[in-house]
Structures are given as structure tokens and as C-alpha cells.
Design a protein around this nucleic acid. Structure first.
Lengths: 224, 224, 224, 224
DNA sequence: AATGAATGAGATTTCATTCAT
DNA sequence: CATGAATGAAATCTCATTCAT
């Protein structure tokens, strides 16, 4: 994948040496995570990527574009994989659990990425104009679709507010990831995925199902 | 109230003209909200506050200290009022509703403040070293206390995870406020307070209020 | 004596409180010696003198005038005492010894003063326009007069070059005082006065006088 | 020769374009001589050197480093040439005359250099930490060695104090060069070299060279 | 394609100095 | 007389960015 899918003044000569482009992005992610956008210098990144400053401008038209290019690839892969797998998961509740795991896992697995996104990109107005942000939005729609599916098939209560519930999930994930970036706690982010799911699910499941399931489960257990 | 309660290298000559200090802070809040920290210049702020650039440095030792001084007063007042009122509210659920309203209201009522906090301060590592941040932490403890109260008096389920639930609330509020700052939507943030409360409450209230369903759950336990 | 006899834009309201003026000067001398002119701030001096910044400007019209006022009093006293005593000293050689002792003693006794003069004033073009500098020049003439007296009365060789010899003395004294200011060595500057005198005297005394000493030496040698 | 041999935080990227580095140094020497260190601005120097302000910082890490880099090259060449020639000069007296000529000549030939050294560098404490200053110290040792040689081979009296005599020479040279820088007099500095030498030599030469006269004198005195 | 070298463009910050009280 | 408060006026230095090679 090309290094630079960003919107803002994209380089015409996009392809070049994709490996070098990726190396620069990796270096940038690391440096931005460590120092923040302003404190990081293009030279820092160039040194880390073992290229010259000028070379960075062969691949990215500006320092900001370099920043905005960081999530592009990651987000795209993330989103595609979600799109691919979701249809194979049965039930809205299971889909929701999957989404939460994936969402939190994305950050848990890429701490530098998480730090850049939470501490730098989230505060950037220009990022909203980015292609990467469009994918973020698509991704957000997945949640809504799952909620709608759950409501329709009776897994979720009909009176839940999808946008609100998504805000709860999304917000709590970002809250926790931000804490992790800033304070280093908790040690294992991914552990929280089930807690989030459970708490949310308790709040949104429809009463009927709730009962049934539990009854079933209890019975099974009792049998065993 | 003094202009500068911040930690990092506070000016000894704090008081001077508190009104001018406050005017500078107000101007800074406005400018930072509009342009962000980096793009805002000290001159911008000085012009808006109708003082000279140098005067700003009589009140705040650096541009960053000026930034960190913005939440100090607001947060302190907010926290004190919470502390004052909370004891007079009956029941954990009512207290929680109050906290959420206050929390979201803080941002809804001060859009510039909200923007500075969400887009700039949240991403700043140095802000964590600030006195203002200490108050934020105190404030966060209020939530936990309310959850514990609710668990003890049976209003909330005993298996809820206070830190997680707080993350859901806190995270969703910040998520929504950030959206408002960046996208301008929704028109009225405060409307969401009850939605958040209701959704959360549904998820955490104790079964008694829920009767039927939870009976089953209790049975599970009894079986085991 | 008033605090400010300097040329450059002297304050009309000279007298005021001479004690405070002197305190300011003393503080300035100390601070300038410690930090140098540029690094020293008017605030530093004000703090040390226990007055406000503004008060300093009641006594001295500028930071530079304050600097130039430092030597004024000291030099004047020094010069007057020289003028007073010199006539009572017999012989040019004795007078010369006296001048050298006084000259070196001036700095040895006032290390801060020495430091300010050697490290700061000597490099200042504007100092040359100062009244204090005029006294320095007068003082320099003393040397010339002594040499002339010595030449005339046969104590010194008639082919010595007064200006050159003065340069040797003056230069060596300043060289040594500067070293003391910068490197702290030697421990006791005043010890060197006789060495300077002896060495110079050996070079400039007239042959007649020269003899005595050498007789002794020769004899000793012969004996040995 | 590289532009930057100074100690204090030397630029790693030293070489670049040595000619440009030298041009900057030349410009700096000129401007510093004309205006003094503080009054001279980096822009002044950049303009004179026909480079941008920023380019100066590519070659020198700070304005002060630029100042301290001025003597480096000059001093090094001066010292090396001395070291090279001294061994080929017969006798301590001749060597001393050579050193004095060279020493005074160094300043006489480079008026800007002289002014910078005398008015600015001599008062700078930080200059003492410089590599260039180390060479100055080496150079100072040459004098001592010459005196020791002269004492040993009988050219100079055995009771002279090398460090004192050096102070006389060094001090008088700097005194005279400083006067030249500040007052413009005398027209030709180098003329004074022989005067200094003669006067010093008269004071330090051994009596043997003086013999005859002294013998006569001795006899007279003995008679008396 | 890669880069060494050069620079344009400012912004923060510092202080000496002023002046009304 | 003393000073608290305010500010005008710069200057250093930093970097992102460009461009010729």
C-alpha cells in the first residue's frame, strides 16, 4: 500500500519506494508518540528512519501530512478486516463483543499508534478532513448497524439509543487508551474489553433474552 | 481569585491585578479554543486581552503555564460546588444523575473551555503535573464513592465495576464534548446527560428494581 | 560625595539620600562583579540593595550610568590621597614604589571593584567619556611626573621612555589583577608590588646607583 | 581550516563549506570589533557575510560560540609558527625579542582581531574554557622557557622572576594594544616592540654583559 | 531517487525603562 | 521619595521546507 493516501496536497509521485515510505511512517509514529507532534522534528524522524530530511519530503508533502498518514494504513486494514469478519458472526451481541475487542485490541496491540491517535490526532481539526478519518467514520457506522440489528432481532432493547451507546463504548475505549498512553495503566488494556462489553450488554439487552439465556445457562450448569 | 494557581514554576508576584490576570486568562481561553495552542500566539492573546505581550509574562511565566492556568479556577469551583451539594442529595442514583449533569454541564456551559480541555489539554503530558489535574482526580473519586454508596445500599448491583463504569461515563462525556468542539454537533450537549444517565443506570441498577429477570440470575448462584 | 558624578546624562536631582545611592552602588558593584554587566539585571541589583527597580532610576539614569558611577568615588579618593601624600615622599624611586603599591593595593583591597574594572569597564568605549576616566588619566600623569623627576635628579637613567615604562607597570598590574579576577590567583596580589617595583627599578635606575648594589654582589661573587 | 574548533558545544556538522565558515568568522570579527559583542546582532554579521541568519547557526551553535571561534584559528597559526621558528633563533635574548615582536605584531597586523580580543574576549569568563585559550596558555609558556634558558646560559640575571617579567611584557603589550583599540594611538604599534624589549632587557640582562662600567663604579664605591 | 546545504519566517521571552500614584 | 505595574523594543534561535546537484 502506498505510503500516502492522505487528502491534503498529496504527492503526485506517490509510489517510489514503498518500503522506505513505510519505514518513514514507522519512524514518525515512534517519534510522534514519544515527543508529541510539535516537539518532534523532521530531523528526529529522518534520523530514526535513516534517511535525510529532504527524503521525507519526497514521500510526504509536509510534517502534518506525515502525521495524518500514520493512521491511514492501519485504519484501512482494521476496517477491512472488520467488514470481512462481521458477516460471519452470529447475532448482534456477538458482533458487538467482536467490535469492542477489535477496537480496544487495535490500540492495545500498537501502543505508539495509540499514543499518536489519542494525544495528537484526536485534537487535530485538520485530521477530520483526512481520508483516514472517513474510514473511521465508516467504522463507526458498524456499531450503529450492529445495534440496529440487535434491536430488530430482539437481542437489544428497542428503546436504546444507538448513537449514545456507541458514544459510551467509543468514549470509554478512548478514555482508557488515553490513560494507558499517559499513565501507563492498566498493564493490559485488552482485559477490559469484556468488562466493557458485559457492562454495556447488561444495560442494553432486552429483558426477554436476558431471562431465557440465563435460564438456559443455569440449567446446563446445574445439569453438569 | 488569583490568576495563577498552577504548579509549574508559578510566579511569586501572583496577585498584582487579579482582574487583569483573569482578563488574560479569558482571552487565552478564547484564542486557544479558536486556534489551538501552537497556532495561537502570545501576541494574539495580548491583543485580545488588551495588554502588551510583556504584561502576559508578568502574570504567567510562559505560554504553557498560561494554558495550564485556564482550567485551574474553573475546575476548582466546579469541584467545590460538587463537594458542597453532593451530601444533600438522597441516594446514589440521584447523586450519579447529578454528577453526570454537572460534568456535562461544565462543558456545555463553557464551549471555549471545553474546546481547550478536549483538544489541547487532554493531549498534554505536562498537564498531568498540574495542580488543576489533581483536582480532576479528586473529582473522579466522587464517582467511585457514589458507586460504592449505591452498591452498599442496594441501589446498584454489587457486581458492577466502579472504575469501568466511571470510564464509560467519563469517556462518553468527553467523546461527546470533543465531537461538539470539533463538529459542532449536537446542538445541545446537556440534553444528553439524561440519556447517559438512563443508559448507565439501566446497566447498573440492582435487580430489585428489575424483579423477574434477576430472580433467575440469583438462582444460578444458588445452584452453584 | 554624591553618588553620581558621571557625565552621560546626569540626574538633576543628584543628592536625595546619599546613603541609599551608595548602597545601590555597592550592590551594583557586587552584582556586576559576580555576573558581568549584561547578565546582571537591574532587578538583581535592586534586590541586593533592598530598593525597588524604579528607585535605582531615581539615583542613576541608566544601567550603564550605574556601571560608570562605580569607579567614580573610589578613583577620586584614590587619586586625592595620592596627590596628598606624594609630595611628602623623598625621591623618585620611593615615589614610584609608593605609586605601585597604591595602584596594586587599590585592586587588592577591593576585589569586586577590581573585577568590575578589569572585566567590564576596561572593554567599554563609553567609559572613556566619563569623568571617572579623566581622573584615571590624571592619575596616570603621576607616573610620568615621577619618571621625569627621577631622570632629572639622576635616580633614573636619562634614556628611559616614561610612557613605555608606565605601560609596563600599568599593564603588568592590570594583567595580574585580571588574572586574579578570573582565575583567583595569586592569593595575595599585594605581594607582587615589590617585585614589580624591583624589576622595573632595576631596568630604569641610573648606573651610578646601580653600582653600589653591584659592588656588593661582585664582592660576594669574588669571595665565593 | 574548519570554521569551528571551539569547545563549548561544537557543531558536529563542522565542515560543510569551510570557506563560508571563514567568511562568517571574518564578518563576525569585523562587526564585533566595531560594535562590541552585545551591540552586534547576528543579523549584522549575516548581512556582512552575505548569508542568512540561519546559516550562521549551521556553522556556529550560538552567537557566543561564534565569538569564541574567532581567535581559534589565528591563535593556532600564531602559536605553531612560534614553535617552528623559536628553535632556530640563537640565544634567549634574541628569542625574547622575537617573541615580543611576534606578540605585538599579531595585534598590530590584525586590528579587528586585536579589538575583539582586548575589549571583548579578555573580559569573558567563558573564554577561559575554550580550546583557543589553552593555546594562549601554551604560548605563555614559551616566555617562561626563554627566561629559563637565558638564566641558565647566563644571558639573564639569575634572580629575575620569570612569571613577573612575563607579566610585565604581556601586560604592557595588552595595555598598549587596548589603548590602540580604544584611542587609536599610537599610529604604529609595532614600533614599540623594540622599546619594550630594550627596557625589559636592560632590567633582566646579567651584569657580565655590563661589566666594564660596573667594575669602574665598584672601585669608586669601594674607595668611598 | 536522495540529499547536503541554505534559508525564510517568526515567536517567545527578557529587561531596561517609564509613570501614575 | 518610593515603587508597583506596565510595556516597548528587540534578538536569538529553531525548523520546516526548498532546491541544485
Amino acid at each position: 500500500m502506498p505510503a500516502n493516501p492522505s487528502k491534503i496536497k498529496s504527492n503526485s509521485k506517490v509510489l517510489k519506494n514503498p518500503l522506505k515510505g513505510a519505514a518513514i511512517l514507522r519512524a514518525a509514529q515512534h517519534i510522534f508518540a514519544k515527543k508529541g507532534f510539535q516537539a518532534a522534528t523532521v530531523s528526529d524522524i529522518a534520523k530514526k528512519a535513516k534517511v535525510s530530511d529532504a527524503t521525507i519530503y519526497e514521500y510526504f508533502s509536509s510534517k502534518e501530512e506525515l502525521l495524518f498518514s500514520i493512521p491511514a494504513e492501519t485504519i484501512r486494514e482494521y476496517h477491512e478486516k472488520n467488514r470481512e469478519i462481521l458477516p460471519h458472526i452470529q447475532g448482534a451481541a456477538n458482533k458487538l463483543r467482536f467490535l469492542i475487542h477489535r477496537h480496544l485490541g487495535l490500540y492495545a496491540d500498537n501502543p505508539d499508534y495509540a499514543t499518536v491517535v489519542m494525544l495528537t490526532l484526536k485534537g487535530s481539526r485538520n485530521f477530520l478532513k483526512t481520508d483516514a478519518y472517513k474510514i473511521v467514520q465508516s467504522s463507526a457506522r458498524n456499531y450503529i448497524q450492529v445495534f440496529e440489528e440487535g434491536i430488530q432481532n430482539g437481542e437489544f432493547r428497542s428503546d436504546i439509543k444507538p448513537y449514545l451507546v456507541r458514544a459510551l463504548i467509543w468514549g470509554s475505549i478512548e478514555h482508557l487508551v488515553t490513560r494507558k498512553s499517559l499513565l501507563g495503566k492498566p498493564a493490559d488494556l485488552l482485559d477490559l474489553a469484556d468488562d466493557i462489553y458485559d457492562t454495556i450488554f447488561t444495560g442494553i439487552r432486552s429483558s426477554k433474552q436476558d431471562t431465557t439465556i440465563h435460564v438456559n445457562v443455569n440449567l446446563k450448569r446445574t445439569d453438569a
